[in-house]
Nucleic acid binder design. Structure first.
Length: 289
DNA sequence: CACTTGACCTGTCCGC
DNA sequence: TGCGGACAGGTCAAGT
């Protein structure tokens, strides 16, 4: 599921709610989702919540950090201690039935609120790592630059991608070691905004193309954050709400629908095993196909 | 090195 | 109504 905008949305929501809370207990319902000893973090207090690429980090007072990767179907949902409504309308909080059959771990806090880690497909994970060894984490240390960072420029993008000049541009920006946080949805959207066919080799891009591509990446990510992310299947934010970016997306999941610019039906192909959407009219300049 | 396929899992949707 | 297959936001390993 979650790509950068979805994890960012969760981060923003969570950080206003859980900083200062102390972990009282952790229930593990699926061992693979939380393979370490939960005692490492029980009794510790949350000091901050952050995001790097598609990973959510929660720093604790005992020099440990909890890392969450949601992969395709993960959810992180916070529920405050049960609010009983007598005679009124049930709150949104009460309507979220939690835990449910895809709940894999439950973090319980001292004020009796809870953080639910749900993951239908069980690909996601939570891991515990020493905060001062974060830069040694095998996943984190390989990540490329952050596209929403102040320092992200067309030149940074150029340097990140040009190492593999023959790779198709859409595949290149999906590679987390080249560029962090862009997943399948925003890779398609960014290519559309840059008017680049997804198969265009990186080596064929001009300086102007890198400028358009970097703008396209930033624009689609920021736009999605505004809409609360993309909810194709399972994504919800930290309080269980869906995101609506796909309602305004230009190409993703729009096969056969008219291009919002030229009305040509959107095409779908497979690239690197992933569904890839593009406008065959607007994005055909550099490809003879 | 470029590129593909399968694996990890569960659920949903679509055609027959 | 049921059954089989395709497909789904991500990564990783192994194959050609």
């Amino acid at each position: 599921m979650p790509e950068l905008p979805e994890v960012e949305t969760i981060k923003r929501g969570l950080s206003t709610k859980v900083v200062g809370l102390t972990i009282k207990n952790i229930q593990i319902l699926n061992q693979k989702s939380f393979p370490q000893d939960p005692k490492l973090v029980t009794g510790a207090t949350i000091t901050s919540v952050w995001r790097r690429a598609k990973v959510l980090g929660i720093d604790l007072s005992n020099n440990y950090t909890l890392l969450f990767h949601l992969k395709m179907s993960g959810q992180i949902i916070y529920k405050s201690s049960k609010t009983r409504v007598v005679g009124g309308h049930p709150t949104k909080d009460m309507m979220l039935d939690m835990p449910n059959k895809s709940t894999r771990a439950i973090i319980e806090f001292d004020n009796s609120s809870k953080l639910f880690f749900n993951d239908q497909r069980k690909f996601g994970w939570i891991k515990v790592i020493s905060t001062d060894k974060l830069n040694e984490d095998p996943f984190l240390k390989k990540l490329g630059p952050e596209p929403l960072d102040q320092n992200f420029t067309p030149d940074v993008l150029h340097q990140a991608l040009i190492k593999h000049p023959k790779i198709a541009v859409k595949v290149a920006i999906l590679d987390q070691t080249s560029l962090a946080g862009v997943g399948n949805i925003y890779a398609c959207e960014a290519c559309f905004l840059a008017k680049l066919h997804p198969k265009t080799p990186v080596g064929k891009l001009t300086k102007q193309d890198f400028t358009k591509l970097s703008n396209g990446i930033v624009t689609s990510l920021e736009s999605s954050i505004k809409y609360g992310g993309s909810s194709k299947h399972t994504y919800v934010n930290d309080v269980g709400e869906k995101g609506y970016f796909l309602e305004v997306a230009n190409v993703y999941d729009r096969r056969g629908l008219p291009c919002r610019i030229c009305q040509t039906p959107i095409s779908k192909i497979t690239l690197a095993g992933r569904g890839t959407y593009f406008c065959p009219q607007c994005q055909s300049d550099k490809i003879t196909k």
